[in-house]
Design a protein around this nucleic acid. Structure first.
Lengths: 231, 231
DNA sequence: GAGTGGTCTAGACCACTCG
DNA sequence: GAGTGGTCTAGACCACTCG
């Protein structure tokens, strides 16, 4: 019914079949609008989506270019624990929650001084009585002096920080690794030493200031990321 | 300079501060256009981006609603081997490439019959003389009868299928797991038995027809996914 | 300076929701 | 039937690229 999906499909087909040579710009937006007998805004809308999907890129003043036919690999989305464990009863156990002095390692990732006060929270999250995730969280204590007054087993620490303590998180950086669990982690998760797990390391920022550093160990035998996309 | 980023930022701020109650619609597009003294299309553009970023959802005829303040977790993007290994010399070694009969396991994932001819390609991809990825690929043989005539060590199998053999891939489904390498895989990757690795399982489709099933084992000690986002 | 993409306007008609 | 979001038009001005 709408016109832009047809334009988008037609252009996608042409791009995949190399109808438009790589390195050269596609016809300009006014030209495409004329070819498809639509207004420029409608042609743009089709191109907007192709750009977002990675088929073309645009340079203002120069034109719209094919991206090249690299394989679009899709993405894996990290879902909050409660979401992927829903349907079963979940528990959160707080093993430790106290102010510690920053170790050299923590001082580096939080860009603080060794010995600075850091709030350390160590939790285990379980579903159906099975421990699934270990969480070790280091937060600049000066930013959250009152965090310990909240119930860290019942509440989302992220939500408490953002909503109740007014921390304004502006950026999150994270990495995902596959690691063998060490003895301590394996014991907490009740799996054999060396079991494969996902390790997510996350650093949060408020402007250029680092707010927290979190490590999550997620049991590899209980969790998988899913993705589906159209190449 | 442009108007829509300001509208977007203002709305985002309001959404994060619960200025708009959950469950109730935001002001309508014409109302927002009036408030910000812009045309409706400009207001829409700001909302379009907020919708794409997950802050609001829209129901035609009913309105635009806050999504709720769930933590947006970001995504991990899988990058093609050549891209993340760039800067070093990469090699691809073909261990096997032959037509086999579908085993029960392969028949299920490819929705074929046990015994159907399936092209099996087993490769190892290395960078700087270090094996990093094992790849086992099963392709419906009837779809690619001539694939073996191509140089599977030099070319991207995906590109050969799409560009030279005209296979039209319409969907890709994949999962990401953390696993312990078994003896065979560990030997190929020259790491100890049980080393943690990423296992990516990928199924490709052409319409409802399944085209191929691929397993990638990626050394956990050599690869990490990265992500950065604004919550 | 000619052409390109980026943004914006003031309208219009439509399918849809909801009371 | 009133109001909502979805789409589209025919213009306009701008910043930018490129020969």
């Amino acid at each position: 019914m709408a016109k832009y999906p047809l334009i988008k499909a037609t252009l996608k087909e042409r791009l995949l079949s190399s109808y438009y040579p790589e390195g050269l710009p596609l016809p300009s937006e006014p030209q495409l609008a004329k070819e498809f007998e639509v207004s420029r805004m409608t042609a743009r809308r089709a191109i907007d989506e192709l750009e977002r999907e990675g088929y073309v890129y645009r340079i203002q003043g120069a034109g719209t270019f094919p991206t090249g036919k690299r394989f679009r690999q899709g993405v894996f989305r990290v879902r909050p624990f409660r979401e992927w464990a829903r349907g079963t009863e979940t528990q959160t156990r707080v093993l430790q929650a106290r102010v510690v002095e920053a170790t050299p390692e923590i001082a580096i990732v939080l860009q603080a001084q060794v010995g600075d006060p850091v709030l350390f929270v160590h939790r285990i999250r379980s579903a159906a009585d099975e421990p699934l995730v270990i969480e070790k969280r280091y937060i600049m204590h000066e930013l959250v002096p009152d965090l310990l007054e909240h119930n860290l087993a019942a509440e989302s620490i992220h939500e408490v920080m953002v909503e109740k303590l007014g921390i304004n998180l502006t950026r999150v950086e994270q990495s995902l690794e596959a690691v063998n669990l060490r003895q301590e982690e394996a014991d907490f998760l009740r799996v054999p030493l060396g079991t494969a797990a996902f390790l997510i390391r996350r650093t949060t920022y408020s402007g250029i200031k680092r707010v927290s550093y979190i490590n999550y160990w997620v049991r590899g035998d209980r969790y998988a990321f899913q993705d589906s996309f159209e190449p």
